[in-house]
Write a protein that binds this DNA or RNA. Structure first.
Ligand SMILES: [Zn+2]
Ligand SMILES: [Zn+2]
Length: 717
DNA sequence: AGCACGCCGACT
DNA sequence: GTCGGCGTGCTC
């Protein structure tokens, strides 16, 4: 029997809401943050050491199989961030660790020693004469000619050869020097607001969250660069988070030009495991000064972290939608708090959460209202739709405006957040609607490849010829998608190039870049697209923006829909126009009198956003209160119902629970889905109450009959 | 999450 | 008669 408090406490890299104990190794206790391989169930798994603790009573603990790290792979502040992330989002600690680490480390690969460079040893010189392997030969030659080689710069094919050469003693490790930082000066003259912003941001010390509200084209990136420069020159490192992979290349270019190619790196899920691991390890050793990355980059170790930037902080992509439902933006704020560094949240259309924090005095805020280069804000106007015939969802006036714009030699951008040809196909004779067999949703007609697809599960089928109900061949579509818009426009403007920009049209890596390059040639053209058009790329020759389906955002069951609409309209508007050719934005709507649209006409974000925030406060919704959703799914609706009823009954005093309510998508991939809403006055109180509640839920017998998960601060429903 | 065990449908 | 479908339960 082991001593009471002498067991290793370990988090298995799996979504298990418990900690497991193993015998303390004979060599002594291990520090928290070291990975181990442990026997588990019938096999073995990788796990993270959390510390020492009491041995479980009545269980024969096993010995660990291997210690994978000689020192903790994350510093104490990041370990605390992980612990916070598990506690706040009520998620299994082992899965949180696994999500936070690069895949290679999660799978148990060793942390590479990036600091080491290699040169040829005496034995290697001798071996040079007789070695025959092609790879080995090439490697030794390279070592001889270059004198010194860093694995990170070595072509991938030669890395195994290097490992082999080290093993045989032909190559010898030496600590490579960290390249010196050489900043170039800003090629721009900062306008007065930018200078003021930079002055405030440079002066920020310690934990200090600052919301940078800069209209599109106000030069936020230049403010980031100039703010970071002195901090980097003083030896610091910086973390820049962006919502999407597609936004990294442009930002990476700007940063590399200013701070040097070898000082800056991207980190995102589009990279290979090996590439991510090398970048991660180099950042950890202080060899990289700036990391630009998406969500999971918030966990990259940076020993001299001096500042965090979250760009486009309003973007919902910062919230992970599967597994551990964390918000990278919110964890970035927590990280800044734990590391005691300033954090800048930048956006032209800040989230109501951040605006609320400004109102409460938790964040400072800086405005950039001036556009660089004297560009004008686009004028916004409504196009009321009153019983007029629509052609493929486009009104006569909008088509007319398109024609006029093209005739003047300018470009048009039409925004419609719906892929496919039509969001539904139905029988003209009996009204039968084609539904997904596994989901409670209509199938989307993709006319280009004559298929019906479900956008919620993987289901797809050939376009049917007849109605399965009555046999009629008269099948008609309802509603419009981007494909249909494209067709209508081609017919109406046969001589104008039309670019469809959505996930279906953009097959392949470079597709978007190609379209952007073509469109920037400034010939008259029409861009039709989804969400993708709202992010990143600027189209200077676009002088007309049409929002085709405005009303989708006005009357949605999701209480965040109006906020999204407001942000999307202004973000899309920001893609267009330039100094000598200001843009204009037309919103098609059946509800021109709607207060949100009326407020939008001013072209400013602050006023309508403040109004939406006031509505949320009045309705007791986030960010005025804290919300979590408990979701459950099972093949039998009765099980879901029974679990959620049982859960509601167990809610601790103070936790306001409503439901069960059917989810917005009642059935997905054959699973019936429903949810409970749990609210509390503040996030801290919510966290405390949820912890108690979930502990009780785990003991609930009905819990084993369903798949359940908790989403704290949910963004989509 | 894996993985083993166990109990019912359509195959050699 | 088996092979394998996934529903259920467990992992220090
Ligand atoms: Zn029919
Ligand atoms: Zn489906």
């Amino acid at each position: 029997m082991k001593h009471e408090t002498s067991c290793l406490q370990v988090a298995i890299f799996a979504p298990l809401r418990r900690i497991f104990s193993y015998a303390c190794p004979a060599s002594g206790p291990l520090p928290a943050g070291v990975r181990v391989r442990v026997p588990f169930a019938s096999g073995n798994r990788i796990a993270m050491v959390l510390g020492m603790g009491p041995c479980p009573p009545g269980v024969e603990v096993k010995d660990i199989q291997a210690v994978l790290d000689s020192t903790p792979i994350l510093d104490p502040a990041l370990q605390r961030l992980i612990a916070f992330g598990a506690a706040y989002y009520q998620h299994a600690i082992g899965d949180v660790w696994a999500t936070a680490l690069p895949a290679a480390l999660r799978k148990g690969q060793p942390l590479p020693d990036i600091a080491a460079s290699y040169h040829l040893s005496a034995a290697g010189c001798a071996a040079l004469q007789r070695v025959r392997g092609k790879r080995q030969r090439a490697l030794l030659d390279a070592l001889q000619t270059d004198g010194m080689l860093a694995p990170a710069t070595l072509e991938a094919g030669l890395r195994p050869a290097l490992r082999e050469a080290v093993r045989r003693g032909w190559a010898q490790a030496v600590a490579a020097p960290i390249p010196a930082l050489r900043c170039s000066n800003s090629p721009f003259h900062l306008h007065q607001e930018q200078q003021a912003a930079v002055a405030v941001l440079r002066a920020a010390q310690g934990f200090s969250p600052i919301l940078l509200q800069g209209v599109t084209g106000s030069g936020k990136t230049e403010v980031y660069l100039e703010t970071l420069r002195p901090r980097l020159e003083a030896g610091g490192q910086a973390l820049v988070l962006v919502p999407e992979i597609s936004l990294t290349p442009q930002l990476l270019d700007r940063f590399a030009q200013r701070f040097g190619e070898e000082q800056v790196a991207a980190l995102h899920s589009g990279q290979s495991d090996g590439e991510r691991l090398r970048t991660w390890a180099a950042a950890r050793e202080g060899r990289l000064r700036v990391i630009i990355g998406t969500r999971s980059a918030v966990f990259v170790p940076l020993p001299r972290l001096a500042m965090i930037v979250v760009d486009e902080e309003h973007d919902p992509s910062f919230k992970q939608q599967t597994g551990w439902h964390y918000s990278a933006r919110d964890l970035a704020i927590q990280r800044a708090r734990l590391e005691g560094c300033p954090i800048v949240l930048g956006s032209a259309t800040p989230s109501l959460e951040s605006l609320h924090n400004v109102d409460l005095g938790r964040y400072r805020t800086i405005h950039l209202r001036q556009r660089a280069g004297g560009a004008q804000a686009p004028a916004i106007a409504l196009l009321p739709l009153r019983r007029q015939g629509l052609q493929g969802g486009l009104s006569g006036p909008l088509l007319g405006a398109c024609a006029a714009t093209l005739a003047a030699g300018n470009q048009v951008l039409l925004f419609l957040n719906r892929r496919g040809y039509a969001p539904a196909l139905l029988c003209h004779d009996c009204g039968h609607v084609f539904h997904c067999p596994r989901c409670a949703a209509a199938l989307i007609w993709h006319r280009r490849d004559a298929r019906l697809r479900c956008h919620h599960c993987g289901h797809e089928e050939r376009l049917p010829r007849n109605c399965p109900q009555c046999g009629s061949a008269a099948l008609i579509s309802a509603g419009q998608g981007t494909e249909q818009l494209e067709d209508v426009l081609r017919e109406r403007f046969p001589d104008t190039p039309i670019w469809r920009v959505d996930r279906d049209a953009l097959r392949g890596r470079e597709a978007l870049e190609n379209v952007v390059r073509e469109v920037r040639r400034d010939e008259p053209a029409i861009l039709v697209g989804t969400q993708i058009l709202a992010k990143g790329h600027h189209f200077p020759a676009v002088t007309l923006v049409g929002i085709v389906n405005t009303d989708q955002g006005l009357f949605s069951a999701d209480f965040r829909a109006p906020e999204r609409l407001l942000q999307t309209v202004l973000q899309v508007a920001g893609r267009a126009g330039r100094a000598e050719r200001p843009g204009r934005v037309l919103l098609q709507t059946h509800h021109p009198e709607h207060p949100l649209l009326q407020a939008l006409l001013q072209g400013d974000y602050s006023a309508p956003a403040a109004a939406l925030l006031a509505e949320r406060v009045a309705a007791g919704l986030p960010p005025a209160t804290a919300l979590a959703v408990l979701r459950a799914e099972a093949h039998q609706r009765s099980r879901v119902e029974a679990f959620l009823q049982g859960a509601a009954a167990l809610a601790p005093a103070g936790l306001e629970v409503s439901g069960p309510l059917p989810s917005l998508l009642e059935r997905r991939a054959g699973f019936e889905r429903a949810e409970l809403w749990a609210q509390a006055g503040t996030r801290a109180v919510l966290q405390r109450l949820l912890s108690a509640w979930l502990q009780a839920l785990e003991a609930l017998p009905q819990a084993r009959q369903v798949r359940w998960q908790i989403d704290v601060d949910p963004l989509s429903f």
